[in-house]
Design a protein around this nucleic acid. Structure first.
Length: 614
RNA sequence: GCCCUCGUAGCUCAGUGGAUAGAGCACCAGACUUCUAAUCUGAUGGUCGCAGGUUCGAAUCCUGCCGGGGGCACCA
């Protein structure tokens, strides 16, 4: 895992993880809402002897004037039995806030409007600029989290169906680590189930064997084709289907001939996964992979224990747990199938074993599963049974972080079984190619560097498109949208950052010394565009905290986009190099450096590179 | 049938019980001899699926309905 800080500030401060956790670092600036909320709480205590649990501080509605508003007067009015405007006035009289804001104003039925004093906001922004974490606090309750993500199937090429879990999961790993949690990613490879039986049976029919392990002469895309053919046989030929199921039993029973072939598939597949992760910029390595096979030895034990304790019973020949509250279409209890009637195990059992392992071996106190929303019922049942069994104690959180399905542009489900899916490697390659075209047209970078930037822009576009909207929603797969190079896209953020770096680079060319002095100078906010930019950057920290708390990366995307738009406006209206006033120039340079650092850090948290130049 | 989820501008999407619901794309009109125009400025564009309810206040919470998607016993 690389450092949590992608980019050393030009100020010369050395970024390192140790620095973050050492005690002699100045405390990070508290976030703006907390500052205001604290004042309002004090006022409520002084005026009414009331302890507010929420001071209802919100960013102001645009055009209403003010930076933040307090909505608490209306809710207090009823409790106190007097008009909300009077409550607002009373609160204002007791507000000790003059050092932070201009005198608050009261609007509408009792909104209290706050506008930060320029000198205070200037000092606050300077504080952010001096803070390596840009104000992002460390979690008060650092947890040990095991996060399940990606989960591709061995012997199949990764396709768009693996995209979301990989991208969302990787981003969450980074965000959670950044706020101070200990996160263990787990790539739960599909290396053990019925599809595998199909493939083993089929390739054996083709003459592959232990002595002639053909996979050495085949690439992953051959395996993919074989898998599709095997699937067709499986669906069409019941006898083949039975033999394939039997293969799974042999595999799970440890049959050496079957295992040998299986291992060859794994090796080939790992190579392919690493290639895709590299291209995508996901930090997953083979060390993070524990496939379904890993849990195989534990499966009989899991089944036996559930049976012994009466938590699972034989039903239609299969061993099933029936957690309360789950019913099938007939209204009968719905089983979690612990062992099939043919003796094989399904992912129900594997996931139970994984829960147990993650709690016992990793000592996790939170489990996160970044898996498609269609698995909601499955995880609800797994968690329910694991709780019953005591493998998942009440004080350990387990959360299924679901995400919407992939839809085709016709709005229909993106089918993968028939083999019509887009390969992930092709997807990213095309994104990179398209980025390269634009770069070739616009960039004056040397050709060698263009290729690298194209990879960063192309992969970023694919990832950002996925991360920028609420993961719960279905996701329409669209080349055009994924690869759009304008609007709310990663390249817009990268472009804004490159412009910022360009300003700093130019300043450095003129005088390294002056730049260094500028980056230590106080930030002074006077122009509207400076003010808007400072506020945007100040809201980076709450956006990160909120993303970590809700596991919704689109919140961070939204804030980064706001920062980038604020910066673009600032860039247009606040010239730096033609600015005669040296102090203003220094302030703007430092604000630019802070912005760039924030964008770079934010993109890094999303797993997206921020090139110096485009 | 039951459960989950979504429904906001032509399209793609934000929106933490709070004021006149916001962006991007597309379309239209402007701004490059000027720090990277992959940019910026402006205009157009809304029965927040429908109907009730709770509330001083609802896109947001509750109920019902309509519509889309998903899930519901030996695939994962």
């Amino acid at each position: 895992m690389s450092s949590q800080f992608p980019h050393s500030p030009t100020s010369g401060a050395v970024t390192s993880e140790e620095a973050v956790f050492s005690a002699d670092v100045a405390p990070a600036p508290r976030d703006l809402e907390h500052e205001l909320a604290e004042c309002v709480r004090s006022a409520a205590r002084a005026a009414y002897s009331i302890d507010l649990d929420d001071a209802l501080i919100r960013p102001s509605v645009a055009g209403r004037g003010g930076d933040y508003q307090c909505n608490v007067a209306m809710s207090l009015a009823k409790r106190l039995g007097c008009p909300p405007r009077e409550v607002a006035e009373q609160l204002c009289r007791h507000l000790d806030i003059d050092h932070i804001t201009e005198p608050p104003t009261i609007g509408g039925p009792g909104f209290i409007n706050f506008t930060f004093r320029s000198d205070w906001l200037s000092a606050y922004t300077s504080g952010l600029a001096a803070d390596e974490r840009i104000g992002v606090p460390l979690a008060a309750d650092p947890r040990r989290i095991v996060l399940d993500l990606s989960g591709p199937n061995v012997a199949k090429e990764m396709h768009v169906g693996h995209l979301r879990s990989t991208i969302i999961g990787s981003a969450l790993v980074r965000v959670l680590r950044f706020v101070g949690h200990e996160v263990t990613p787990q790539n739960h490879l599909g290396d053990w189930g019925t599809p595998f039986g199909m493939l083993l049976e089929y390739t054996q029919e083709l003459g592959w064997s232990v002595d002639n392990p053909a996979p050495q002469n085949h690439s992953i895309s051959d395996l993919n084709t074989f898998y599709q053919q095997a699937r067709a046989r499986f669906d069409a030929d019941p006898a083949f289907a039975d033999r394939a199921r039997q293969r799974v039993v042999e595999l799970q029973g440890g049959d050496e001939a079957t295992l040998a072939l299986w291992r060859a598939f794994i090796t080939e597949s790992q190579r392919h996964f690493s290639q895709v992760y590299e291209l995508l910029g996901a930090d997953l390595t083979p060390a993070d992979a524990r496939g379904e096979s890993f849990y195989n030895p534990a499966l009989p034990e899991v089944a036996a224990e559930l049976y012994r304790r009466g938590l699972a019973v034989i039903s239609d020949g299969a061993l099933c747990a029936f957690p309360p509250g789950f019913v099938n279409p007939e209204g009968e209890p719905l089983p979690l199938m612990v062992r099939k009637s043919d003796g094989g195990y399904t992912y129900d059992t594997t996931d139970l074993a994984a829960v147990r392992y993650r709690v016992e071996e990793f000592k996790a106190n939170q489990l996160i599963y970044v898996v498609g929303s269609e698995q909601r019922l499955h995880f609800a049942m797994v968690f329910a049974v694991a709780r019953e069994a005591g493998w998942l104690p009440e004080d350990i959180a387990a959360e299924h972080v679901g995400f919407g399905m992939l839809l085709g542009e016709d709005g229909k489900r993106f089918r993968t079984r028939s083999g019509e899916s887009v390969k992930l490697i092709d997807l990213v390659s095309e994104a990179v190619d398209r980025a390269a075209e634009v770069i070739a047209q616009r960039s004056d970078l040397p050709v060698a560097q263009q290729a690298q930037v194209a990879r960063q822009v192309g992969a970023g576009a694919v990832k950002y498109a996925d991360l920028a909207s609420d993961r719960e929603r279905d996701y329409v797969f669209s080349w055009q949208r994924m690869l759009a190079m304008e609007g709310n896209t990663s390249v817009y953020l990268q472009y804004a950052n490159a412009r910022a770096r360009s300003l700093l680079g130019r300043a450095a060319e003129e005088s390294e010394t002056q730049l260094r002095d500028a980056l230590a100078a106080p930030i002074t906010i006077s122009e509207l565009a400076e003010r808007a930019l400072a506020l945007s950057v100040a809201r980076f920290a709450p956006a990160v905290s909120s993303t970590a708390a809700t596991l919704q990366p689109h919140r961070l995307c939204g804030q980064l986009y706001e920062i980038a738009t604020s910066f673009s406006k600032f860039y247009e209206s606040c010239p730096i190099h033609s600015c005669a006033d040296a102090r203003v120039r220094a302030s703007r340079l430092r604000l630019t450096e802070l912005t760039s650092r924030t964008l770079t850090q934010g993109l890094w948290l999303l797993g997206i590179k921020a090139p110096e130049r485009l």
